[in-house]
Design a protein around this nucleic acid. Sequence first.
DNA 1: CCGCAGGATACTG
DNA 2: CAGTATCCTGCG
Length: 293
Amino acid sequence: MKKIEFTSWHDLTDSPYFDEASFYETFDGGQSFNWKIKEEYVEGIFLNAIFRIKLKRNKLVFSIPKGLDSKTAEKKLSNYVANDIDFKSIQDQLPWRSDPILKCSIEAFPHLRILRQPLNETLFSFLCSSSKQIPQIKQILDLSASRYGVNIFSNYRSLPTWTKLAQLAETELKELKLGFRSKYIYKTAKFINSNPSWLNKLNDLSLNDSKKQLMRLPGVGEKIADCVALFALGKLDAFPIDTWIEKILIKAYELEDFNKNQLIRFAQHHFGRYAGYAQQFLFAAARSKVIKL
DNA sequence: CCGCAGGATACTG
DNA sequence: CAGTATCCTGCG
């Protein structure tokens, strides 16, 4: 195994601005399981490319394996961090003026953003995520990549493709510590494989229609459908309700008598077209104990 | 609305 | 150090 060498640090053109807390919450919060946290940088693979990323004077700088085209890599990264969105305007359109809980959440992570993650990888990751905590999810994904992933460079492997997954036996999936999720992955892989254009068509649908489609898959309930819609389909009005968010709404927003559907409807009315961003701010704030529950 | 699924992690005795 | 509770979400 040849030792891999990385380039020196490149500035990312038009990089978003990050403070330290927002940077780590963006790359290692609830939205992505892709990044390994090292002393000096975070390292991860997406779209068949390997990246090291860190902050330099509040902007992103990146390094890739030597010998690869840094312009191509830079384009991928720019899109991944959504450097073209008007982040300030999105933030300003959230109802923080009338919502002190949201206001203090945003103040704690003022530059937290939502990444644009590849659809196939995001669907796989979140199918693996149900009833698991983040370190365990990362472990499953690591194991899946090292066994069945695409060899990118040296010993770096990306997550397995759906085509590859469709070729695996259910017993082989079980060995990835997927537990009862192996059945979901197995059936979903077969479905995607026999409906090759199905995944990409999701991009053209509204939030509700894309969720309906996603929830046809075994193992995809409303929460996971919302995550995929928000993190991979760019539906910024999606509002995934996990146990943290549920706790926040019930306790901090005092919505004791609301059921799941009523909570989602409340969130979409109250937070509006960028409800997904509100969700990320609240989630980060609750986990870091900025909001007390 | 409840209980199960499963593997790690955090407690208890 | 063995045993037990807890976490977490789709599904029947």
